[in-house]
């Protein structure tokens, strides 16, 4: 096919007499390189190189303003005995696990609800995505205000309107309250993404399957577990990977609302890395904390790749 095309083009060319420039841009190898260069170049310089540099920095004692020397595993050793670091690891895992379970539970429910024939469907979808669109930091500030110790609207409703409690809740003052408050804010922000992605997955399931199941007398629970769940699984796996990845490496929400406090109880690994690295100036130690996240990310990536391959296989290679 391509051979005949080439011949045709060369046969036509003498009439046009193309310049050297045109001919250069018509040669396939040159074109491939020229097309890939901007994207691959940018990614190599600002993504791959810093990734390697970060790993190198983790093994040095670099501070802001002076270069560092190779110190081996010293940074990791000091982190090993660092209670604050282990606290951050614990909270990162806790935050990711709890927020992901809640996000997917509620998100799946919302997706199933939206999949019913609702009026104003597109308006509803637009409204639901709003928390995802608005800059996280700005909505986090709104949550901060809602979690205020004295003027929290949530406490106001619970105490003065409903009378369920006697005292205002100190949302951000005690470690566990602060931890749960942050998880709630993260879930609020994450539900739209999960719901809309899963809704797209739900809409690819052919209605004829449900009709067939109805005729066979399947209950709505059976229809969900036998049809919806298995067919949704591939897209669910991909969304799950992204959600876990971005929750695990979250920074903005925690930095905006608590900055790791009270008494370091809500530090995520990312916020701790930032605090030690940029304002604290210990770039080496900050990089070591950031690098400690990598094994987890690799796990998530492999998982995503397997899920993606399975999805391609299921849909005959015609996805994304």
């Amino acid at each position: 096919m391509s051979v005949s095309t080439e011949r045709h083009v060369t046969w036509k060319r003498p009439q046009v007499a193309p310049s050297l420039f045109t001919r250069l841009f018509d040669s396939k190898p040159f074109l491939i390189v020229a097309c890939l260069l901007p994207a691959v170049g940018l990614l190599l310089v600002f993504l791959t190189y810093p990734l390697g540099l970060g790993i190198w920095l983790a093994f040095t004692d670099t501070h802001i303003g002076r270069g560092g020397y190779f110190v081996g595993f010293e940074n990791f050793e000091s982190l090993w005995y660092d209670q604050v670091f282990w606290g951050a690891v614990f909270y990162t895992v806790f935050y990711t696990a709890v927020a992901t379970v809640l996000k997917f539970g509620l998100g799946l429910w919302l997706a199933l609800l939206l999949n019913e024939n609702l009026p104003f469907k597109s308006l509803l979808r637009a409204i639901i995505l709003l928390p995802w669109i608005v800059p996280t930091v700005l909505s986090a500030i709104a949550f901060w205000w809602m979690y205020d110790a004295q003027f929290s609207i949530i406490s106001y409703v619970l105490v003065d309107v409903l009378g369920w409690r006697d005292t205002y809740i100190d949302f951000l003052g005690t470690p566990w309250h602060a931890r749960w408050s942050l998880v709630a804010a993260n879930v609020w922000r994450g539900i739209p993404f999960v719901a809309i992605s899963l809704l797209a997955g739900l809409q690819t399931i052919p209605p004829s399957l449900y009709e067939a199941a109805l005729l066979d007398g399947a209950s709505s629970w059976q229809r969900f577990t036998r049809i919806t769940a298995p067919l949704l699984m591939p897209i669910l796996a991909v969304v799950l990977t992204f959600s876990v990845l971005f929750t695990f490496t979250d920074f903005q929400l925690v930095y905006a609302i608590t900055r790791g406090g009270p008494i370091n109880s809500t530090h995520l690994m990312a916020t701790l890395a930032f605090q030690r690295g940029i304002p604290g100036g210990q770039l080496g130690e900050g990089a070591a904390i950031a690098v400690s996240m990598i094994p987890f990310l690799i796990l998530a990536t492999v998982f995503s790749y397997v899920a993606l391959a399975r999805r391609k296989w299921q849909q005959g290679g015609d996805d994304e």
């Binding site: 993504l47 970060g54 920095l57 930032f274 950031a290």
Partner: peptide
């Protein structure tokens, strides 16, 4: 899949 949180220090 490489998040900004692990790149910002070297960057």
């Amino acid at each position: 899949l490489v998040p900004p949180s692990i790149l910002f220090i070297p960057l």
